[in-house]
Design a protein around this nucleic acid. Structure first.
Lengths: 201, 201
DNA sequence: ATGTATATGATACATCTGTATCATGGCAGT
DNA sequence: ACTGCCATGATACAGATGTATCATATACAT
């Protein structure tokens, strides 16, 4: 039945199968064969659309980034209109705490990739998106704006506060996924710190 | 040449070989054979002293925990005498930021284990030590003490502040290992937040 | 002195992994 | 209607991995 086929669609189908496996059983279990089976295609096809496994992993990672980005936009949009610096930062950070199924999935999969990259730093070079630093600058900028409006503690350094918050979100995610804390309490901890930052006393 | 041999010593030798490999090339590369070679023994011996790989992994993890604990004690001791709540908390958290070779090693190896546990949560049950929660309570208690002495912001909830700091340290470690930041700037971010907590205004 | 438990070596096995090769059915352009 | 390229299938290959088996030399208890 080989008619001309939509390559992008096929790649999407396969890469998402990879992400599904990574979520359910870990990246380690995402072998070419497992991905093929999960995607309902033959091993050959996985090889056909992604010549090498590294290519597949990187493509799936980019898609994961896209999913996180669209989640963040969705949360920011839902945070209120008109958006305030505080609501934006709150939404941005809160949506990265594993409280619902989607965030758990995203955070868990990112963690798996993180571990992978730790021992193959060269792979990271080929990955276009570099979100963390951009995110930090973005958050810092909102904090600065809030400070100028008298809506945030003016004594804080915006860059440092932003970096600290991002790191905290990251760490909270780890503890939730590690089972040491549930998502709600992690969110409460984050919210508490946001209240402190955004409540000028 | 088989004389009666010190089992504990042999186990230590092998487990530490595992940790060395995990540090240098990642836990993934720590196969039984690789560990045997690194430890300078035969594959059979690794099997002899640790029947199964899981047993080896858990034993090495316990030793890693011991190394972290002794590092923490060392740092706390070096933090000044007599120790103040602030110096204790500062030392405890600072020594987990990957600034020197030992902390990088420890944090990196813990990260590798973390990824491993994400997909095999049942393994975690067999692991005796559960440091993170205890650490949190310990830090919270020092904060409370400092508050009572007027040496810390009394408006903060000690438990929440402690949890936030621990998460931040964790997240900072990840970003350093991920190459997005160097150890010194991570430490600066942590220190800044500690200053805020411990400087009643 | 002898036998038995201990410590170690050599090697085999089954499985999984990523990748490569060979083959073939069908559509498109001419 | 033929030809060549696109999409896909079946299968092979080489290497790694965890674990198991068989053998054996030594040291100690008796």
């Amino acid at each position: 039945m080989p008619a001309r086929v939509d390559h992008e669609e096929r790649r999407r189908q396969i890469a998402e199968a990879l992400l599904r496996i990574a979520d359910a059983q870990g990246l380690q279990s995402a072998s070419m064969r497992a991905v093929a089976t999960e995607a309902g295609v033959s091993l050959r096809l996985v090889q056909y659309y992604f010549t090498t496994k590294e290519e597949l992993l990187l493509d799936a990672l980019a898609r994961l980034g896209g999913q996180l980005e669209s989640r963040m936009k969705r949360w920011i949009r839902a945070a209120g209109s008109p958006p305030t610096p505080r609501s934006i930062v709150t939404a941005l950070l809160s949506c990265m705490v594993p409280t619902d199924q989607e965030s758990r999935r995203i955070v868990r999969t990112y963690s798996a990739y993180y571990a992978l990259v730790l021992d193959a730093p060269e792979v990271l070079e080929k990955h276009g998106t570099t979100p963390p630093i951009l995110l930090e600058a973005f958050v810092a900028e909102r904090i600065r704006t809030a400070q100028q409006a008298g809506e945030a503690d003016a004594a804080r350094d915006p860059e440092i506060a932003a970096a600290g918050l991002l790191a905290m979100v990251n760490g909270l995610g780890s503890s939730v996924l590690g089972g040491q804390r549930d998502g709600d309490s992690a969110l409460a901890i984050l919210t508490h710190h946001l209240d402190e930052l955004f409540n000028p006393r």
